[in-house]
Amino acid sequence: MRTPAVPVRLGGVTKRFGAVLAVDDVTLEIPAGLLVTLLGPSGCGKTTTLRMVAGLEHPTNGRVFIGDEDVTPLPASNRSVTMVFQSYALFPHLTVFENVAYGLRIAKVPERALREQVGAVLELVGLPQVGERYPAQLSGGQQQRVALARALVMKPKVLLFDEPLSNLDAKLRKRVRAEIRDLQQRLGITTIYVTHDQAEALALSDVIVVMNLGRVEQVGSPFDLYRKPATRFVADFIGEANLLPGRYAEGMVTVGPYTFAFRQDGVHAGPVTVVARPETVQVATAGQGLPGTVRSAFFMGTTIDYLIETPIGEVSASAPPRVTGMLPVGSDVRLQFAEAGLYLLTEDGR
């Protein structure tokens, strides 16, 4: 059985802190039951947006809807929303059990039902044995899960995460992130997740909202964002990308002296920015292609990363190691672009 999941909508939401415009006219639909990530560089307004959904911050302009209800005037305590904080915010003077039971006690849930629910949720997050301990007696990963349990036990309509993994080491981060994903899919709660780590966002999300300078740059699935970034910012921020100046005309793309066939619907003839992921740049020593010289080469294990100087600027390429080994620095090479990894941005792509 699942709680009927509800969508979250932001309508023209703006937040100012004095002179700082933290969130600038954001309109957003977060579909019911999905995990949506707010992704962007530090200070772009992710946390502020999340906190406005939580009710911890109130928009200067615009409205917030949870389901059909306009919750803009409601305080955080009346929103059926819970949050997992970056610092976990576990109450240090209460045991794990009491931490998780905190909200239920406030809701005056009878003792028996309360124990049952707390037990169930602790089991759900895989920590059935730690109820009597204090938060300081848990590892970082365990604290994280207690924080999650405390948020889940309230049966929120919407679950919020603000960079919940930033205090964990790299290995644990991967594991916990998979667990969060798994749990969210099983429970089907509408979830908003803030991170500035694009790898985390790609691995975790149904939908990613890329933010920059308080505005939404692009909304889409991880795959779409990677393959079809709407702006230079998105192309640059998600994954690595070569952004090359070029021209497009009737199914032909020209970068520098090199022209090749490539068709993209909806692109008019004229100047374009060619987005080429490094792993789709093919490095050859002869033949057709953009001419260049190897400036540096690093052996990375699964790939060799080259930095190649061309007439239109530096291009990075990740090539699979060849039997013959690495190309020496200074080699003259020809670059070609695999059609599957190419994307054209027209000039309005900022």
Partner: peptide, 20 residues
Amino acid sequence: RYGSGLPVLRRGSMARVLTA
């Protein structure tokens, strides 16, 4: 303070967690 231990629950626990 909470008795000898926490109730042991099986997989069905999720359902009970989620009734709002």
